[in-house]
């Protein structure tokens, strides 16, 4: 009886090791894929770091970036945002929320005649500034908008 119990425990332990090995093995291909996904930028914990990793540290303030989003978001899990950029030749739009655990939310690169426009929905943990960075003609421009959040949408 006791021996059987030992055996089962041993078996369970070996299974656990195998599961760990599998998990490690499974993680690797996704890491390799993430090479094109800007891991360093998405895992930055501060706005300054995130901006540095996307190469937009010295972005100039611009009034030509129009951000349409609610002033008060009741549900932090779903906040609609619409960015329209009137700068000519907009190449990318980056969305960041200053006080999210990971400020960088999304980075859209345009090609082949896509307008400087982006519409999506995002999550925010708490009231903070939302920054939009636009690259146009090789230069970075930034605009900001304060959004109040009643119920955070990150943890829970």
């Amino acid at each position: 009886m006791n021996q059987l119990r030992r055996l089962i425990l041993k078996g369970g332990g070996a299974g656990g090791v195998l599961a760990c090995a599998l998990a490690a093995g499974l993680l690797r291909p996704s890491r390799a894929h993430a090479a094109e996904w800007n891991k360093a930028a998405f895992e930055s914990k501060s706005l300054a770091d995130a901006l540095k990793h996307i190469g937009a540290a010295g972005a100039a303030e611009s009034a030509d970036i129009h951000i349409k989003a609610p002033e008060v978001a009741e549900n932090g899990a779903v906040i609609p945002i619409e960015v329209t950029c009137r700068l000519p030749g907009a190449e990318s739009i980056v969305l960041l929320a200053e006080k999210n655990p990971f400020p960088l939310m999304a980075q859209a690169e345009f090609a082949g005649g896509t307008e400087g426009y982006l519409n999506t929905r995002f999550k925010m943990g708490q009231t903070s500034a939302v920054k939009v960075v636009v690259r146009a003609g090789g230069k970075h421009y930034i605009a900001s908008r304060e959004i109040k959040v009643t119920i955070g949408g990150c943890g829970g």
Partner: peptide, 26 residues
């Protein structure tokens, strides 16, 4: 077959994501 948008997302994009964009010359 002409690439028009390439987007990288973090987990801060809402559940069941919606993305709206506009393509000229379509």
């Amino acid at each position: 077959d002409r690439p028009v948008l390439s987007m990288q997302c973090g987990p801060a994009i809402s559940k069941n994501p919606v993305i709206g964009f506009r393509v000229k010359d379509a």
